[in-house]
Amino acid sequence: MNFPQGGGCQCGSVRYEISGPPSVVYACHCTECQRQSGAAFAMAAVIPGEHFRIAKGKPKMFLRRTSPVKTMECWFCADCGTRLYHVPGGSAYPNRNIKPGTLDDTSWLSPTIHFWARSAQSWVRIPEDATRYETQPDTLAWTGPDISASP
């Protein structure tokens, strides 16, 4: 994979650029991610904040409660609704969990961690060499700072 890489929404109103590789690419099989993605699971590529920038447009944000005490910023295109990235735990979290399907080049993507595997669709095959969690991991240290937040 070469950097920088670009990505954006379906209509082209919002574009972003990443200038470095993700710390991890993961798949979440929780029912909330299935609903949000409209698919069997959702993926995220965790990009250090210093390697992410909005190059065009202005995404809109809604705050989703992930527990009684936790929230997640969910950023999307206000024109076409494409979900672009998440910020678990809010602005204190330094990384951007981009929706990797919004990248222009997705050929290099392969999730190495799968969580909420107990909610995975029965036909989904998680690779044997992938790290697997039946629910939410106790720590998300592999995403950057050790925070306890929802994907």
Rank of each mutant, 00 (worst) to 15 (best):
N97D: 13
V24Q: 10
K56R: 11
G20P: 00
L103M: 15
Q121R: 12
P22V: 10
K99F: 10
E73G: 08
M72T: 12
S150N: 13
S67A: 09
C33T: 02
R35C: 04
C77D: 01
S148L: 05
P111K: 00
T112V: 11
N95R: 04
V124H: 02
P88V: 07
A141R: 14
F3L: 12
L140Y: 06
S119I: 01
C30E: 11
P127L: 05
G20T: 01
P48Q: 05
Y26V: 06
Q121N: 07
C74F: 03
I54D: 11
P127A: 09
T31V: 13
Q5M: 12
I18D: 03
H86N: 15
P22H: 13
G57K: 01
S13A: 15
G81D: 07
P21T: 00
G12P: 02
F62V: 07
T66A: 15
T135N: 12
N95V: 02
R65T: 03
T31I: 10
Y93S: 09
P68D: 15
R125A: 09
D104V: 05
F3V: 03
R15Y: 05
R53E: 14
S23K: 15
A55G: 00
A130Y: 04
R53Y: 08
V124F: 03
F76H: 11
G89F: 13
A141E: 14
E17C: 06
P59E: 11
C77F: 02
S110Q: 09
G81C: 08
G144R: 05
Q10T: 03
S91W: 02
G90H: 06
G38F: 02
E134A: 15
D104G: 01
P59M: 10
W75M: 13
S110R: 08
R132M: 12
Y85K: 00
G81A: 04
D138T: 04
G49L: 11
R118Q: 13
S37T: 11
G89T: 06
D105P: 07
V25E: 13
Y133T: 10
F115K: 06
C74Y: 02
K56Y: 07
V24H: 00
G6V: 01
S119F: 03
D146M: 05
A27Q: 00
G38M: 08
W75V: 04
T131V: 15
C33E: 01
K56A: 13
W75S: 13
M43Q: 14
T66E: 14
R83K: 11
A44Y: 08
C80Q: 06
S150T: 06
R83L: 14
P88W: 00
C30S: 08
G90P: 04
T71I: 14
C74E: 02
G89M: 10
C33R: 00
R125W: 01
D129A: 13
F76C: 04
P145W: 09
E128S: 14
C74A: 05
C74W: 02
L140T: 11
G49W: 01
N97G: 02
H29R: 04
C77I: 00
C30Q: 09
K99G: 04
G101T: 12
W75G: 06
